[in-house]
């Protein structure tokens, strides 16, 4: 087996190796209860990374995810008393709209997605600041439990966050692998000129990909806000970098076209293991972003398809 053939298998090999290393050093890490709570804790990030996968799969990126999630935590908290479960719908629509705006700016105004999503992220962040009055808001616990309790409970020892994450994974996997839209995404990511020359509506597909990314970022924010029972314009800060790391480490390169949501699952688990291992190895929490920054650079350098990028600026 050559290195080239081995490349698609790197992500899960990395995951197993990491689990083994941490497990040997700290056997407690491998306790089922510990693993389950680790996975449950990472779910909001995972859902955001699922959305990010679609943006990166078509060769773009979504830098607005974290701000969209922040905005949703505020929206959910504000809308909960009046709308109950309807607050969820408001959040999802808001995320969808933000993503669609990014997609529109990227495809119609031809602004590269790293700029368009950064700008839309700025708007989302500002909306959150304005609506919250720059304060942390809290949900009424009874109201929260009535509307969102099902998201954060636990059945048969499995936290419901994991169920939500798994359901979204199944849904996005189906979308990616079994639908016309998923096939079109792949074609746009792997060979946009050929996709256009086959008559695919390339722009519409891209807008949908960004909309999907925005929507999943909103769901991530919603889950996070239900879990913490409140919202603030900075609640989800620190999500963006690990979400991008999860997608790239999982094996969806920045150039797009390969990888997908299953890869992102593995990538997210890698991020989760790294994060909890920092606790075990007593790395200061403030150093987390430092570690993820370094991993991001290494992951991009290792996975990017340079034949698709002649000029890098």
């Amino acid at each position: 087996m050559t290195l080239h053939q081995l490349k698609p298998h790197f992500p899960w090999i990395t995951l197993l190796a990491l689990v083994a290393v941490v497990g040997v050093a700290h056997p407690n890490f491998l306790l089922p209860a510990n693993l389950i709570s680790m996975v449950a804790d990472i779910m909001p990030l995972f859902i955001m990374a699922l959305g990010m996968t679609f943006a990166i799969y078509i060769g773009g990126i979504d830098l607005s995810s974290q701000s969209v999630a922040n905005m949703t935590t505020v929206l959910a908290t504000i809308a909960l008393p009046g709308l109950g479960l309807g607050a969820a719908l408001v959040c999802i629509l808001a995320g969808l709209t933000m993503g669609a705006v990014s997609g529109f700016v990227t495809t119609r105004l031809l602004v590269p997605s790293f700029v368009s999503t950064l700008a839309v992220g700025g708007i989302a962040y500002s909306v959150a600041q304005y609506l919250s009055g720059q304060r942390a808001l809290y949900m009424d616990v009874t109201l929260r439990d009535a509307s969102f309790g099902w998201m954060i409970g636990s059945s048969f020892g499995i936290p419901h966050e994991i169920v939500v994450g798994a359901a979204l994974l199944a849904l996005t996997w189906f979308l990616q692998s079994r639908t016309v839209f998923g096939r079109a995404l792949k074609a746009v990511g792997a060979g946009e000129p050929a996709a256009a020359a086959s008559g695919l509506p390339v722009r519409r597909i891209k807008v949908l990909a960004f909309a999907l990314s925005g929507m999943l970022a909103a769901i991530a924010g919603l889950l996070f806000s239900a879990k913490l029972s409140g919202g603030s314009p900075t609640l989800a800060n620190g999500f963006l970098l690990p979400a991008i790391v999860a997608v790239l480490v999982g094996g969806t390169p920045l150039t797009g076209g390969v990888g997908g949501v299953i890869n992102t699952l593995i990538g997210t688990l890698i991020v989760a293991v790294i994060r909890s291992s920092m606790l075990y190895f007593e790395v200061d929490a403030t150093m987390q972003q430092m570690v993820f920054g370094i991993i991001l650079i290494v992951a991009i350098a290792a996975t990017i398809d340079r034949s698709k990028m002649r000029i890098v600026k």
Binding site: R183, K186, A187, A190, G191, A194, A195, A196, G257
Partner: peptide, 12 residues
């Protein structure tokens, strides 16, 4: 570039 999509299989 414009004919086939490399990375996609024959039926795709």
């Amino acid at each position: 570039i414009e004919g086939i999509v490399g990375g996609m299989n024959v039926y795709e």
